[in-house]
Amino acid sequence: MTDNPNLTPEQAADYLHLSPRTLIRWRNMRKGPPWVKAGRRVIYRRADVDAWLARNVQAPVAEASE
Rank of each mutant, 00 (worst) to 15 (best):
M1N: 09
M1A: 12
T2E: 15
T2D: 15
D3V: 01
N4F: 05
P5H: 07
N6F: 11
N6Y: 13
N6M: 12
N6W: 11
L7D: 07
L7T: 02
T8I: 08
T8N: 03
T8K: 11
P9C: 03
P9L: 07
E10M: 00
E10Y: 04
Q11F: 07
D14K: 10
Y15N: 06
Y15H: 14
H17N: 15
L18F: 14
L18M: 14
L18T: 10
S19K: 15
P20S: 12
R21I: 13
T22M: 13
L23M: 08
L23F: 12
I24M: 12
W26P: 10
W26T: 09
R27N: 04
R27H: 09
R27L: 04
M29D: 15
R30K: 13
K31C: 09
K31R: 15
G32D: 12
G32I: 06
G32S: 08
G32A: 10
P33F: 07
P33E: 01
P34Q: 03
V36H: 09
V36D: 05
K37G: 12
G39R: 04
G39P: 09
R41L: 05
R41D: 06
V42K: 00
I43C: 03
I43K: 05
Y44P: 06
Y44K: 05
R45N: 05
R46Q: 02
R46D: 02
R46V: 03
A47P: 01
A47R: 06
D48K: 00
V49E: 01
V49I: 01
D50N: 06
D50C: 01
L53Y: 04
A54E: 15
A54F: 00
A54G: 11
Q58L: 13
Q58T: 09
A59F: 05
A59W: 01
V61T: 13
V61Q: 08
A62P: 01
A62K: 03
E63L: 09
A64N: 05
A64W: 03
S65C: 02
S65Y: 02
E66N: 05
